[in-house]
Simulated assay, not measured.
Amino acid sequence: MSEKLKVGIGGLGAIGLTLARAIADGTLPDLTLGAVSARDAEKAKGNLAAIGAEAPIVPLESLAETCDIVVECAPASVFETIARPAIETGRIFVPVSIGALLNHMDLVDRAKDTGARLVLPTGALIGLDAVRAAAEGEIESVTLETRKPPLGLAGAPYLVENDISVERLNEAKKVFEGNAREAAKGFPANVNVAAALSLAGVGPERTSVEIWADPDVTRNTHTIRVEADSARFTMTIENIPTEENPKTGKITALSVIATLRRLTAPLTAGT
Rank of each mutant, 00 (worst) to 15 (best):
I15R: 02
I257Y: 13
P188N: 05
V175P: 14
V108E: 06
P121H: 13
A86M: 05
I23W: 07
I211Q: 09
I98F: 10
G52A: 11
A133H: 14
E210N: 10
K173R: 13
M235K: 15
I139N: 03
S165G: 06
V217I: 13
D163H: 14
Y158E: 11
K112S: 14
S37I: 07
C67W: 02
L254M: 07
G26E: 07
A258R: 04
A195Q: 04
K250M: 05
A228C: 07
P149D: 00
T81P: 00
M235Q: 15
G16R: 02
A265E: 13
T27G: 00
A269S: 08
V191K: 01
I9V: 14
A133M: 15
G16P: 02
P95E: 02
P29R: 13
G46L: 04
G137Q: 13
T143S: 08
E227A: 12
A24Q: 08
L102Y: 05
E3W: 15
G203H: 15
G249S: 09
V108G: 03
K174E: 14
N162E: 13
T218Y: 03
I98Q: 08
E140D: 13
A195G: 11
A53P: 03
R262C: 04
V94W: 08
P266E: 07
G52C: 08
P59M: 07
E72D: 12
A195R: 09
K112Y: 12
K173A: 01
A154G: 00
C73P: 01
G8T: 10
C67E: 01
S141T: 15
I69A: 02
G155A: 13
P157F: 08
M1V: 12
A44T: 04
S255F: 09
L60W: 12
L197H: 03
P95Y: 09
L120E: 00
I224G: 01
W212P: 03
I240A: 06
I87D: 10
E88K: 15
P75K: 01
L63M: 14
D214L: 13
I69K: 06
A180K: 08
N179V: 06
N192W: 08
T218N: 11
V256N: 01
P204Q: 06
D109Q: 06
L128E: 00
